[in-house]
Design a protein around this nucleic acid. Structure first.
Lengths: 215, 215
DNA sequence: CCGCATCCCCAAAGATACTG
DNA sequence: CAGTATCTTTGGGGATGCGG
């Protein structure tokens, strides 16, 4: 694995994996940039647009840091559209498990959404991909939440409608919150195998499974 | 888009569980304070001592923030020793899974330790408790790493020697690193069931298990 | 437009001295 | 021991500029 020994902007002088990790991605905005790039390669201005308040100099600085740390690479797109895109390296992609832990922890205190418009396009796919897909049971799920449509097929998140899904969930974002965080089935419409959906919820609620051999 | 006109120095203006989580523990030093408190209640000065370079004002500020966020509580110890201790709340304790993810990710790029003295007392117990115990197979393990002794019994980390352990590992901190991170069995002494130790390593290397029902 | 670099200003971090 | 007070330094936010 690539080891970064160079100068990190602000680091902690401790030999500790957590302190080291925070030296790489612990600065303000860094993990949110990673969150955006987990949805796929993005351009500079698209990143800036999805991170309200970041300030262009900070975004440039963070991207440069992430690049020198080996978490992000910069390419020029193929000829037709000759713009630059930023993309996670394999090691950067592995931050998905960190994002999942953080998201599951943060969900428990974030409270219900108040405004449908707080949601950026693609949020549903992102949530399914990083939070729910990693522990999803076999089967195919389609979610129609607000104006977003995405799903999970055999443990992999997919954008858009799913072909012949085993179960379909339709809800507004607030009902989605109440179901997935608070486990209240209110204001949701389920078509198909509801138990499969419950399995999905159960699996995500227990991100740190009991020791397998202890069961 | 950004409809928050007031003054919001810290925090990100997004309805996103990751952004919310980072608003709670994303500031500099916060997660390292949590790391210390995961080992049990600690006094102010002990925290300061185990976080070299933090500055007393920052420590006080972070503790106050963590307290108002409901992640930390402050008690006065029972009469014999009438000092204050800081302790994680149940919600704060649940950051252990986040620490585990971060540590497993950071380990892959931290590189081998160069100096035995970089290690604070109790580091072995901390590592076993947050990183390895959550996915440990049944059985009892004893680790004698450098001058530290700790172990895992049926998925729970314990300080000090273990009674009749199934397997004992003796090594220096550098050999410990090579074994647990790079999987090189060099300079370590194993007594007892070596396969059990391998199971422990395998379980921790795969923190995001494949979807159970897919197997 | 896109991808930054520069400048200004203020808020937060660091260092250290000090106090109940 | 457990912080507060004060001062300096650094970094972030916002606006603007500017070459490609």
């Amino acid at each position: 694995m690539a080891r970064y020994t160079g100068r990190m902007s602000k680091r902690y002088d401790q030999y500790c994996p957590v302190a080291h990790a925070l030296g790489l991605v612990g600065e303000r905005w860094s993990l949110l940039i990673v969150r955006e790039l987990l949805q796929g390669p993005k351009r500079y201005t698209d990143l800036a647009a999805s991170l309200p308040g970041i300030g262009t100099n900070i975004l440039a600085a963070r991207l440069k840091e992430l690049e020198t740390c080996g978490l992000v690479t910069k390419h020029r797109l193929d000829p037709p559209a000759a713009s630059m895109v930023y993309e996670l390296t394999p090691y950067g992609l592995e931050l998905k498990s960190v994002m999942r832990s953080l998201a599951l922890w943060g969900l428990r205190s974030i409270g219900p959404p108040t405004d449908e418009e707080d949601f950026a396009p693609g949020w549903l796919y992102g949530a399914l991909d990083t939070v729910f897909a990693p522990s999803a049971p076999a089967g195919s799920f389609e979610f129609r939440i607000g104006s977003e449509v995405a799903g999970i097929v055999d443990g992999e998140a997919q954008r858009g409608p799913i072909e012949e899904p085993d179960v379909v969930l339709e809800a507004g974002v607030e009902a989605f919150y109440w179901l997935f965080v608070e486990r209240r089935w209110k204001g949701v419409k389920v078509t198909g195998e509801r138990e499969l959906l419950e399995q999905l919820l159960d699996a995500a609620s227990a991100p740190a499974p009991a020791a397998p051999a202890l069961v």
